[in-house]
């Protein structure tokens, strides 16, 4: 009797299949039986930019693996800085940030690229390359981490299928609608199966119906085990989904509720 078969018996065939998307079977197992694993931790984090602007002040926060989090707050409240810190685009002026086993303060510059491969991102303005096709835009994320041609040929169609763009892989971004472009950017973000997906106002440029389409996709990706942090101004989405809501105001956390609503 193998360890795998014991686990499968314990958690059931279906749960085990879901676990395939996690980085390791052990953490997947723990996650499945309800053990919370801390993925992101901010300890007394403050950020003051060179121009004196206090973007974040004394943030203490834990985010578990597999959570779906809405980050709300007015423009300039510190949402983007918060996200930039997770991908280590900015370092804290004070305090420490831990992502998984990594302490970002102590991370060496040359370790950053490999670390970032665990994090996907999507933006309000999609950030697609206009001179590359849909397929090439998604493959780009794999090419730069020097994936093999076989991997690219296998993974890109899979992920395009997931976001519902299977037939549009030869089109250029300019030939797509806003919703479709955002889905390409989502495909690019998840193609190398990141642990964390950061979404900075992903529905900001989309009409309500398209926005819901994107949200369904994000929920599906979250179900497969990716932790999602989404900064948003979309009240309808936040109120209806009832997920954990972290509200920022002037760089401070003013509210952190397990099933929150949008109140700014």
């Amino acid at each position: 009797m193998t360890v795998t078969s014991v686990i499968v018996r314990l958690i059931g065939e279906e749960s085990w299949r879901k676990c395939r998307n996690y980085k390791t079977k052990t953490t997947a197992f723990l996650f499945e039986i309800g053990v919370k694993i801390i993925l992101i931790q901010f300890v007394g984090v403050s950020k003051v930019y060179n121009n004196g602007i206090k973007a974040l002040q004394n943030i203490d926060l834990k985010i578990n693996r597999g959570e779906f989090i809405f980050l709300v707050g007015q423009s300039g409240a510190g949402k983007t800085t918060f996200m930039k810190m997770i991908i280590r685009r900015e370092l804290p002026s004070k305090g420490q940030i831990f992502i998984g086993r990594n302490c970002l303060n102590k991370m060496k510059e040359k370790e950053v690229p490999v670390f970032r491969r665990n994090i996907g991102f999507i933006f309000q303005d999609f950030k697609l390359l206009s001179n590359k096709t849909v397929f090439e835009n998604v493959a780009f994320a794999l090419e730069v981490i020097e994936a093999t041609k076989t991997e690219i040929q296998k993974q890109v169609p899979q992920v395009l299928d997931l976001v519902g763009l299977k037939n549009k892989e030869k089109l250029f971004p300019s030939e797509l609608s806003g919703g479709e472009q955002q889905r390409v950017s989502l495909a690019r973000a998840i193609v190398n199966r990141p642990l964390i997906l950061l979404a900075d106002e992903p529905t900001g440029n989309l009409d309500p119906d398209t926005a819901w389409g994107l949200m369904d996709l994000l929920l599906e990706i979250n179900k497969r085990g990716t932790t999602i942090i989404m900064a948003t101004h979309n009240k309808a989405v936040v109120d209806q989904l009832q997920r954990r809501v972290i509200a920022l105001e002037e760089g401070k956390i003013v509210r952190d509720e397990a099933k929150g609503v949008y109140e700014v």
Partner: peptide
Amino acid sequence: RKEIEIMKLVGATDWFI
């Protein structure tokens, strides 16, 4: 520039860029 930014964000090394 945009391409470089995206490359950096998806984890390309500096030398690759």
